[in-house]
Nucleic acid binder design. Structure first.
Lengths: 124, 124
DNA sequence: TAAAGATGTTAGGTTTCCTAACATGGTTTT
DNA sequence: AAAACCATGTTAGGAAACCTAACATCTTTA
C-alpha cells in the first residue's frame, strides 16, 4: 500500500508542531534559519513539517535545556549526517570560538555530573 | 514516553487530509455532517483530523466507489461500532427504503463478482 | 415531474501563518 | 564598562487556508 505514513511526509502545520514540541513559532523558524530543519512549503508558502522534523526539534530542545548553544548543536547534527566532512567545518570564526567555549563548558558539566552519578565524592 | 503518535491524535489539517484521501473539502464536511467522522476543533474552530479519521475517510471513499450510498455506509459503520444496537436502526422511512434498495443491489453485485472470481460460468 | 442525495461553487468573514523589523535580557568580547 | 552577539519575544501588515451558509447542478428515485 502507498497509504503508509512515512516519517518524512510533510503532514503537520506550524500550530501542531508547536504543541507537540512546546516550542514557540519564533524558535522553530529560528532553527530553520540555522538549517537544522528544512520543512516543506505549500504552494501558499506555509511550512509543513514531518514527524522527522518533530523528532529533530525535540532533540534540539533537549540540547538547549542541557545548556548547549546553536553552534554546538549545529555541529552535533553535522557530525550525524556526515561524520567525515564534520572534521573540517566551514564555520565562521565567531561560531568556532563559540563552539570551543561551549566545548569547555560541556567538559566541566560532564565532570560535575559524572561525579554525582558515580558518587566519587569519597575521593575528595 | 508520551511522545508517541496515537491514531486518534488530531494532527492533520483539512488540506493535507484532502491530499491523503483525494476527497474534496465539501465531501469531507458532508461526511462529518453525517457523523461518520467527528474531527477535533482548534480554538479558532478549524477542523483537526486524526490518522483514524483518514482511515475512515478512505473506507468511505472505497464504499462510494463501489456504488454504495450514505445510508448504507452509515449502517456499516454503525454496525461496526455497536453490532447489537445496529439491529434496530432508528432511521427515517426514506433512509430505510434506500438501504433496502442498496442491499438488493449489493446482493446482485456479490453474485456477479463471485461468479467472476470463482468462474462459475461453466454452470450456465 | 417533483423530491432527495451528493457534490460543486460562491460569498463574506475569521484564523493561522508569513516575513521583516525592532525590542530585550543575558553573555562575550573588546 | 561599553559594544557586540545570541536567542527569543513582540508587533505590524499582508496573504493563505479555513469556516459557515446558501444556492446551483446533476442523478436517482418516487
Amino acid at each position: 500500500m502507498s497509504r503508509e505514513i512515512r516519517r518524512t511526509m510533510p503532514l503537520l502545520s506550524m500550530s501542531i508542531v508547536m504543541q507537540l514540541t512546546e516550542l514557540s513559532a519564533r524558535q522553530i523558524r529560528y532553527y530553520e534559519e540555522h538549517h537544522l530543519i528544512e520543512p516543506h512549503r505549500t504552494e501558499g508558502n506555509r511550512r509543513m513539517f514531518s514527524l522527522n522534523d518533530v523528532d529533530i526539534l525535540l532533540e534540539i530542545k533537549d540540547y538547549l535545556e542541557q545548556g548547549m548553544n546553536m553552534a554546538k548543536i549545529k555541529k552535533i547534527f553535522a557530525k550525524k549526517s556526515d561524520p567525515v566532512a564534520a572534521e573540517e567545518p566551514d564555520l565562521t570564526d565567531t561560531e568556532l570560538r563559540r563552539i570551543m567555549r561551549e566545548e569547555m563548558r560541556q567538559a566541566q558539566r560532564m565532570q560535575k555530573s559524572s561525579i554525582r552519578r558515580g558518587d566519587l565524592s569519597r575521593f575528595y
